[in-house]
């Protein structure tokens, strides 16, 4: 069979299909009104909601570190003074968390702004892949914040414990090691659980997009 025969057959077929399914303006409007959000739009909404939630978590962490905790400690023991190195570490961790968050938000909105539906295929593919990757990284960001905040919280708590309850210094290295290893195990477990869920939900789709991009890059 020649390709010219195919062109002829296709033109008859497509004309026949278009004739059978022709919609008027009202039907087109109804279709537009009834449409639900697609996957990328839903992910975009989830990422924005995620930003708000993370912002609130950071706000609570900062308020806890600089207002609530000092006020509570003051109420328990007037003599208790948090050492300078721990304060510097706490402030540094908070600055790091806020910077990571801002960097993430700015990068995301730059990707979103980068390209509309009228971009060429390569840019549309790149944008879709990046949005999906941001969604995955959002969970990693939450875990990093959890790890950093819990780590400093653990150290501050430990210091208060030593001061208030007179914990034996001989146990200190073991307590720190056990605490840190437990934190790493919890965070690592959550990280792999999130990764597994993400792959189950969007792994094939992401692979398919990457495969298409590779095909596009093959000869360029």
């Amino acid at each position: 069979m020649e390709l010219k025969d195919l062109q002829k057959a296709w033109s008859q077929f497509s004309a026949s299909q278009a004739g059978k399914k022709e919609l008027d303006e009202e039907q087109i409007r109804t279709m537009l009104d009834r449409r639900t959000k697609n996957l990328i739009e839903r992910i975009d909404r989830n990422i924005r909601v995620g930003f708000v939630v993370i912002f609130l978590i950071i706000l609570v962490l900062v308020l806890n570190d600089f207002i609530l905790s000092p006020w509570l400690v003051e109420g328990i023991d007037h003599q208790l003074r948090i050492p300078g190195w721990l304060l510097v570490l706490d402030v540094g961790i908070n600055v790091l968390i806020v910077s990571l968050f801002l960097l993430f938000v700015i990068s995301y909105f730059r990707v979103r702004r980068n390209c509309s539906g009228t971009c060429d295929l390569r840019h549309t593919l790149l944008k879709t892949i990046r949005v999906l990757n941001f969604y995955r990284q959002l969970f990693a960001l939450v875990l990093v914040i959890f790890l950093l905040a819990s780590g400093t919280g653990f150290l501050v708590g430990l210091f208060q414990g030593i001061h208030l309850n007179g914990m034996l210094p001989v146990n200190l290295p073991v307590v720190i090691a056990v605490g840190m290893v437990s934190l790493l195990i919890i965070t690592g477990g959550l990280f792999f659980a999130f990764r597994w869920i993400f792959r189950r939900l969007y792994g094939n789709y992401l692979d398919q997009l990457k495969q298409t991009l590779r095909e596009l890059d093959e000869l360029e």
Partner: peptide, 9 residues
């Protein structure tokens, strides 16, 4: 075509 290629199925 962009939509057809990138739509999640």
């Amino acid at each position: 075509l962009n939509t057809a290629i990138t739509t999640f199925k």
